[in-house]
Design a protein around this nucleic acid. Structure first.
Lengths: 225, 225
DNA sequence: GTCTATATGTAGATAGAC
DNA sequence: GTCTATCTACATATAGAC
């Protein structure tokens, strides 16, 4: 196996800084295009064009369109899950779990990032697509469900005797509200004549905490009876 | 202009019962395919195949793919808006407006139909697509916003002095919760280990009414301050 | 009104030069 | 590793026979 002359131990492949840069540019561009046009509406050509790389590089670095989508989603989902679980761990370690704080631990890692970075705002549209489309259920299972189950269990502990299905329902309502603000704030503006700013973390937490509490506190009869 | 022999006054076009049937079958098939695959993922070919009509008939009867989508959405949206506004009119005429009843007037016309008919369940996925995608904002403006504004005004009247933007925000959260149940109940099942039934109208109203009340009652400082 | 055949464009993916 | 040229498939839409 011929050793390189200038860099002795470089047996197989050099990372090549340009390759890494191109990879990152493709991921960023794909995120933007997938968020705007949806998975089916997006084209590899637009992604390559926006990234400023030749068309062939996209498939070369990322594989199929579907694999690229999963990579794009997974990259941010993993950062987010880590932050959320860290916040939850801290709460539980300090024995300070309340519904408000628990929702804050789930919402704020995303809302903080979305407030500061347009790339994270685009990510909400990706998640909304995955959540609404059973085709992507394996992505939900891999990236979202394990974290969601920890928070659902945390909420259930606050309401002894409650059914997990009811907690899951209320939790999905809450997540949908968070996503709805990110994906539909253009519609909120259209519906409201005034221009008051909306969408603070506090407003969202107030809405969801009250909703969850009402849904789980009430002696609501099982749906079937 | 030769008059027909057998049917004298048939100057321009007969409705032709088969044509009407084909039109209806195409609309139903389109609704199903658009709901399952999304606008971009759907193909005219699948729609024609599912409807059992030749490919050319779809464009002939419905025009472009985009026009077909709008027809599909509009058909149900108009029935729904009528039912919702009727219920609201009745409430206001009888001076019996409460937040719970108002949400019931908005939610029940849809939930009743969705509970009885799979076609209405598919419609939720169409609405979710329209709501999440600014590309379709003209559809929202035409079919959804006028009705939504009436309900937002009704809620605002219950909370004197509240900002319309805040009511709109809480209303969009609520609608998203309704849509989320229809589009993501597969995920609720996956998240909950148990199999308890969920998704009653009462559960949804309890969640949203409490959330809206908390969001609008609290002396929440404007987001900017 | 109904249906077949096809025009025209564009998609994802890849083979092979550099 | 990078990039160009291209293969193959399938999309919407329509022209024109019946």
């Amino acid at each position: 196996m011929g050793a390189g002359k200038t860099t002795p131990k470089q047996r197989q492949r050099a990372p090549s800084q340009r390759a890494l840069e191109n990879r990152a540019r493709i991921l960023d561009a794909a995120e933007q295009v997938f968020a705007r046009d949806g998975f089916d509406g997006a084209t590899i050509r637009r992604i390559a064009e926006l990234a400023g790389v030749p068309l062939g590089l996209v498939n070369h670095h990322m594989g199929s369109k579907e694999a690229l989508f999963q990579t794009v989603v997974g990259r941010r989902a993993e950062e987010l899950s880590t932050a959320r679980l860290d916040a939850l761990d801290t709460l539980e370690r300090e024995d300070g779990v309340t519904l408000d704080r628990l929702l804050g631990a789930f919402f704020r890692p995303y809302l903080d990032r979305a407030g500061a970075d347009a790339k994270w705002r685009a990510y909400a549209r990706l998640v909304a697509q995955v959540s609404a489309d059973p085709t992507w259920h394996h992505l939900s299972e891999t990236y979202f469900d394990p974290t969601a189950r920890r928070f659902i269990a945390g909420i259930a502990r606050l309401y002894p005797g409650v059914r997990t299905a009811d907690v899951s329902e209320a939790f999905v309502y809450s997540v949908s509200a968070m996503l709805a603000y990110q994906t539909s704030h253009w519609r909120i503006g259209a519906l409201a004549g005034d221009t008051g700013a909306t969408g603070t973390a506090e407003a969202l937490i107030a809405f969801c905490a009250a909703g969850i509490n009402a849904r789980l506190s009430a002696a609501m009869p099982p749906a079937g009876s």
